[in-house]
Amino acid sequence: MTVEKLNRQRVLHLLDAIARSDLQAALSCCTDDVDFLTHAPIDVLPHIGPCHGKKELGEFWRTVQERYAEIRYEVPQIVAEGDTVAAYLRVFFRKRSNDRIVQVDMAVFYTFRNGQVAQIREIIDSYDLVQQVLEREIGPLILGERVDGG
């Protein structure tokens, strides 16, 4: 099996572990110094920020689990070359607070070292994500109207 096929399988295995809330299995796919970075407004998503190392990444995933009862992934496209894999993901999060589904398309770029994930970089349609998390349009905020948070 080529390294590309192997790394693609490793990414799918990691996503499966996250989806079934097996954080130990998910973290075992990562190097001790795994580096995670995504971009989204921290006012609305305070837990989303850079994570360095398994402990911080584990805490991030745990926070996501606390907020969402179910996480489901679809992988419409995945491209691998050498030690890198890029996955186009459609992710469905079911909120614990009211059972509503947040659906997010995200691009995730993984870098492997010795068969483990050493770096994760995400790009998200963050405007849409914020609207879904707030459960309202951002337009009034742009116009300066006050909207209360949860």
């Binding site: 407004p41 006012d43 609305v44 998503l45 607070s97 707030l134 909207v147 948070g149 949860g150």
Partner: peptide, 10 residues
Amino acid sequence: IHLPKMTSVG
């Protein structure tokens, strides 16, 4: 854009 601070959801 000034967003409301969210602590319990999201």
